[in-house]
Design a binder for these strands. Sequence first.
RNA 1: GCACGCGUGGUGAAGGGGUUAUCAUAGGAGCCUUCCAAGCUCUUGUCCCGGGUUCGAGUCCCGGCGCGUGCACCA
Length: 557
Amino acid sequence: MAKDYKNLQEEIIDVCLRRGIIFPTAEIYGGASGFYEFGPIGELIRQNLISLWRYHFIKSEENIHEISGSTILPEKVFEASGHLETFNDPLTQCMKCKSMFRVDHLLENVDPSKNYDAMSLDELSEELKKSGLVCPKCKGELGDVRSFNLMFETKIGPSGGIRGFLRPETAQNIFINFRRISHSMRSKLPFGIAQVGKAYRNEISPRNFLIRLREFEQMEIEMFVDPEHMNSHPRWDEVSTMEIPILTRDAQKNGGKAIMISVEDALKQGLIPNQFFGYFMALESEFVKSLGVSEDKFWFRHLLESETAHYSKANYDLEIEFPFGIVECIGNAYRTDYDLKKHAEKSKTKLQIVTDDGRKVVPHVIEPSFGVQRLFYILLLSSYRKGDREWTWFQFPYSVAPYEVVVAPLMKKDGLKEAAYDFFWDLKDEGIDAIYDESGQIGKRYARADEIGVPFVFTVDYQSLDDETVTIRDRDTTKQYRIPMSEASDVIRELIFNVLTFEDLKNEFKEINSGKKHGSDKEPSPKNGKKTEAKKNPEGKKGKKGKKKGQSKKSKK
RNA sequence: GCACGCGUGGUGAAGGGGUUAUCAUAGGAGCCUUCCAAGCUCUUGUCCCGGGUUCGAGUCCCGGCGCGUGCACCA
């Protein structure tokens, strides 16, 4: 198992480097652990991934607004949020009353001669045990030493008088802009504020390629809800019967598996705290499936009490299973009014909403938080294909593929090259994401297109010169049909948006015999019959119309 | 952060003190080719960084950086 994983990860890293998908940061200077950059192809995919998310969670909603905030924030923000206190020093928590204490401070009272700053967490734990110290408040037992030294610190301004920190999550920008946004958008509860952006954590030990990074990107929503109406989501009916996999706390304790349960039932059984929380879980489930993750490979894990912050009323992580282990890529938290109250107190600003019936309420917050790099990696892992042809390829959902189509002349001579190049520009002028490739033999270009997951290739051949047709090759089956150039952009659009499947072209256009001409006796064995998962999940690209979540959205008003 | 292993063209590998570092593949130019990494010619490009030992270091030693694995930690 572990070995398979290693090979799989190595293969994916290999293709990422060769094909311009992901690079290690500062590689020519020896690299920087925990930092990776998106290459040209990776960046196209990343942008599409973010667009797909934006489509699912913002554009398909009525009251969720996106902002883009500063990544450096002054110290006070994190004093209020609690990050400064809880992310920076070796801490111990009283097992009884849950109070947190700085271990170095406690120990300095015992033996001031030792340098506790230089000690490891283990050493500090040992010192703490040896000291026999108990909780100063309640005399309870003190837990193991934990360090949360995760924020990158910086100084703001020439005098450096103000301490700043690179934000460890995007969420704080949303809370500190709450009043401005709610006023300028004339917001009524419930409403959401979303943000896509970088966050930074100085991880002790970055690992596993894109999984644990020091600089990463989050896509977050803070959904603000009237605490008295947590169970009146206006679109609940659209999702209530949708089934999602839940790994309950009981199941975790007993080694059980996730159960499929409708969000309605999950709510009734008290597994999830409210409709708003369940609504997002339902959407996330659909979203993850649209990335090509199969239904039996992910679940929502209810975090154990020990993993849950004291102010949080519920946490569910969406986890995806791979041969090597489990990747957590979406976190859901019911943060109640904790953040707004803390910032209101610290900033002496009222962070509240006046409801229609005249109540002044501090909204409660539901927070779904997505890791871009983790989802990106999951996309690579779940789309990666090998063994059915002589090269590896990515069966990306069309909506996230780096290009829509490659345009290739069959050969460079006899005017084919010129005709193909003109055709390529025609497509681009029509807004098709096309890329032109004339280098090498045609099969090599099909392979190159496959390898970065481009869904289709148009080939301009001799017949094209006679009758203005081109062949279109399907990445997933390697089949080809011949279509008129004049219809090419429409066909691509309809395929990409899943108005048509590739097999639908059969009814209208002629199939082309294709096969290997040169050399080897091995025939490529195109996959037959198996439709790409992508085809079931068309949404998210330019101009695509919304897909129902079960019932018509229009009914919501 | 600790321990172990590893670091050679873009990618994958060989070379483990001694001429000008080898091979495959890839990239570029061209020939050939009427549809799935064929072939031919030319060409581009490599010893992670810094010290040390040595007449001589890709090779040995030390340190750093990076990657992997385990532990610890963690979204």
